[in-house]
Amino acid sequence: MISIRNLTYRYNKKAPLILDHINLEIGHGEFVALIGQNGAGKTTLLKQLNGLLRPSSGSVTINGLDTATTRTSELARHIGYLFQNPDHQIFCNTVYDEIRFGLVNIKCQPELIDERIRKISGLLGLDHILARNPFTLSRGERQRVALASVLALETDILVLDEPTTGQDYKECMEIMEIVKSLNEQGKTIIMVSHDMEVVGDYCKRTIILNNGRVLEDDETSIVLRKSQSLGMSGLEPPQIIQLALRLGSSFHKVNSPEEMAKTIISCTVSGGVRV
């Protein structure tokens, strides 16, 4: 589905490597988190996926299309890309036109456009503000408009660059629940995030990028236990996993407060686990 082979990237011949021999296979329906420090190359890697940047060497293939030779406008039918700042994406006068913009670009049949816009705005709770000017909306709403305009393209891969930054907890949860349901419908999700709790709660697979290299790539609950690799990348495990790591082997499968409480209760009831 997405296949990255020996990918290296630098801005020009003299510049240092930003991506350094990356090899990744991401299959259909996966939910992948890409984590690491600012400057580790996360966004650069995402931009390789839809041809906004092209490999200096190696290859990136999306659904069989080589990004080196495929136009971004063609790749846009396969990959939806949500930018970190919704204000970079939004420029139409109404929410309706904003969602319509991408559909016209990919030459969606005119009679289908309206239907798709209605469908997507229903899903994201934007029906009542379709006629509003996006710039008068709150940051959380603008983020949802930007997401809607990407989702309208009905691509099977969705790339999200820090979709929850600058939002309060409630808005953050709303976005993540939508993304989760999209994944359950079979979409492949690749997401950059700095919030280890969001990563732990939602993503199935986690990749740590460090200095342009893949440092870890495994199931999320395993990667989030690698304190050393996380530490190297300026990150730390979520609170509950930190606790679990300190408390020893009886907690090695614990990822949530509920699981931890259950384990503690079972230990105290059966009574004899020295920690």
Binding site: K47, N50, L52, R71, T72, S73, A76, R77, I79, G80, Y81, F83, N85, H88, Q89, F91, F101, G102, N105, I106, S149, V150, L153
Partner: peptide, 18 residues
């Protein structure tokens, strides 16, 4: 830099700027 980002955002939505 910001203009770059904006152009890229539109290209990602299938807009042909090139």
């Amino acid at each position: 830099q910001e203009m770059d980002q904006i152009m890229q955002a539109q290209r990602s939505r299938g807009h042909e700027t090139d």
